[in-house]
């Protein structure tokens, strides 16, 4: 296969970036998208050029570290797929592919295709946990949880924190990410004690980090590698309103 890549190159956050064009020949169609970038980098290095910096680690779709805009779509054309799980057989011979970093106000660019997503860690840190210290837990069977409840909590907990939802949202909102954690923990009996504080703190943190508001475009669900449902956002809104009502009563 032959592919032409237009890749966003930017030395640092302070410097301006631009799209640069590279052509790769004789690619094997079974190659993954990131392996294609490995080959480009090998060629750049040997030609005394700076290789393309991009985030990646596990290369099996679970760590959430990879992510780029491919032809304007977060993680590229395949649904429910991280960038590392995309293979170039999803493209055609002689295609031109535009590769840009995830774009969002809350994700400053580090270099080239790599962005700083530590804002998501800070949202978790504001309340995305159950307050239990090591050693405090009762027996795991002390509180039965039905199969359905566990599975529903899992559907939300499956989030890998890649930030595709933010990158694809026209508002740069982290509503899907945040609601996935709110949904996971508020569904479980262990997480119910703190549900009010949690949702208020996490929504506030989301605002403080500069994420935009949700206007229900549902674009996030479309690009989410884990297929997290926008119904989680509905649940977060419900939890938030519920918390505010009881807050007033106090």
């Amino acid at each position: 296969m032959k592919l032409t890549l237009k890749i966003w190159r930017q030395k640092s956050q302070q410097q301006a970036g631009e799209l640069k064009t590279y052509t790769l020949n004789d690619l094997n169609s079974h190659m993954s998208f990131l392996e294609m970038l490995d080959i480009l980098n090998e060629q750049l290095l040997l030609a005394n050029e700076d290789p393309v910096t991009f985030d990646h680690d596990c290369r099996e779709g679970i760590c959430g570290q990879c992510g780029m805009m491919i032809n304007g779509i977060a993680h590229g054309p395949l649904k429910n797929t991280t960038t590392c799980q995309l293979h170039i057989r999803s493209f055609s011979d002689n295609d031109t592919i535009i590769i840009e970093p995830f774009r969002a106000g809350a994700f400053p660019i580090r270099k080239d295709l790599s962005v700083d997503r530590s804002a998501l860690d800070r949202v978790i840190s504001s309340g995305g946990y159950i307050s239990t210290n090591t050693g405090q837990a009762p027996d795991a069977h002390a509180i039965p949880i039905t199969h359905q409840t566990t599975e529903a909590a899992f559907d939300a907990a499956a989030c890998i924190g890649c930030g595709a939802c933010v990158a694809t949202c026209k508002n740069g909102s982290a509503a899907l990410f945040t609601s996935a954690k709110v949904g996971h923990l508020s569904l479980l009996p262990q997480g119910k004690e703190e549900r009010a504080e949690r949702v208020i703190n996490m929504v506030n943190a989301m605002d403080e980090e500069g994420f935009g508001h949700c206007t229900n475009t549902e674009a996030c669900e479309v690009e989410c590698p884990q297929g997290i449902s926008v119904l989680q956002i509905a649940r977060m809104n419900y939890e938030f309103i519920r918390a505010k009502i009881f807050e007033k009563e106090k």
Partner: peptide, 15 residues
């Protein structure tokens, strides 16, 4: 026990 208390959604039976 610890993981369940933290909210780890381990697979469960219907009961």
């Amino acid at each position: 026990d610890q993981a369940v208390a933290q909210g780890v959604p381990f697979g469960r039976e219907y009961g």
